[in-house]
Design a binder for these strands. Structure first.
Lengths: 209, 209
DNA sequence: CCCCATTGTGCAACTAGTTGCACAATGGGG
DNA sequence: CCCCATTGTGCAACTAGTTGCACAATGGGG
């Protein structure tokens, strides 16, 4: 859906080979649009076939390529079109929140460790973003590009800040819970299977019909 | 990947038919795990075939069903397993941030209107969440389920708060930009914004034929 | 009473993303 | 100098999610 446009952007910023793109995706654009090298190679092929990019002329004969690509005018036009077109936000999908919801009915045993792990991952990411900010956006730099790139980085920083705070809060909440077991899973055989309904009683984000 | 588990959770909370699930996904679980009715029906079929859920015995003969499903012990066990298993966070993919990055190289003309629209959508969502919070979580409710559900809702509220703030800030930034055009300011010596992006100073912008 | 808009269930084809390889070129260590 | 670990490019099969229908049942308005 958007991978071709991510690639066009990256190539406009700097013509690159598949591998270079892969590296740059790992470092930068990939922070908000991840892609594997296989996806990138496949997409480069399509973009070339569609006449949006072309291989830079190089003098190696064939195999073991290191082919570099650059964007053609048609590619830039397509990127411009796509960037300014109205697009609806994709509906959200978050596994962790879903698991928490499941834990509310099935018990919180076991999930806490993973919450803690996620907290650490987000802290690490946050640190990395802050490092980038310190390095690439010292006060004073404020060309339009700088401002936009900084704005994007700020989104990353703020999102990671949100997650670290929220996860920390969640863990506190867990500590205050009766014990490892959040749900009253009054495991009464087949009755237990449907107990969530009874104990729901208007609680949660599921309003009673 | 997680849709079956979302369905198991929903069915544990309350046995339902495909349509009821669809409705509930629109209102509640779908806030963080959206699914279409087609996905839900397909998945219900699989879950039943796998013996994780079963159709509640009902007395209609066949067609025009309104079949309701409930979770079997095997389904509950699977949900428990999944909930407590370690899982890596999915790499992020955000179109809006990607488009902004594209705008930094291709020009910001046209994107501002959509930013404004997104701001409105997020404000609306935020209002909705706050409404739910007011309605379903009055002070005093604090069974373990309530606390967990509230925690999840809080994540939604805080995320929407982040987006509305960030988008508002982005729009301010845009207002301060030279004009509709962020790119083409020809600052060729601009090294290493996050990945050396701006250093090409327009190379590839107008490729030689 | 019958028509047709609405509600509910579902299949099929497609698109996007992931996983698991395959294999060529390169280059430093034995 | 040659072997094999590493780097770089790529195909194929699979999984998850989306889009576009199809069609049965229901129920209120003419």
């Amino acid at each position: 859906m958007s991978l071709p446009h991510a690639i066009l952007t990256a190539l406009l910023e700097k013509p690159s080979s598949g591998l270079e793109l892969t590296r740059r995706f790992d470092k930068s654009i990939g922070y908000f649009w991840s892609a594997t090298h296989q996806q990138i190679y496949r997409e480069l092929g399509k973009l070339e076939a569609d006449g949006l990019i072309r291989a830079l002329p190089a003098e190696q004969p064939a195999r073991g390529q290191k082919k570099s690509y650059e964007v053609l005018p048609a590619g830039r036009a397509e990127l411009e079109r796509w960037t300014s077109a109205t697009q609806d936000p994709k509906p959200m999908r978050d596994t962790l929140l879903l698991r928490l919801r499941a834990a509310a009915v099935v018990g919180t045993a076991g999930i806490e460790a993973d919450l803690r792990r996620h907290l650490e991952l987000h802290e690490r990411q946050l640190t990395e973003y802050r490092e980038i900010e310190r390095r690439d956006f010292p006060p004073g730099r404020d060309s339009p590009q700088d401002r936009l790139h900084h704005l994007i980085l700020r989104a990353g920083i703020d999102l990671e800040t949100f997650w670290t705070r929220w996860l920390a809060h969640a863990l506190e909440e867990f500590a205050a819970l009766p014990d490892g077991r959040a749900a009253d899973t009054g495991d009464a055989g087949d009755a237990g299977v449907t107990d969530g309904a009874a104990s729901n009683g208007g609680a949660g984000t599921t309003p009673p019909r």
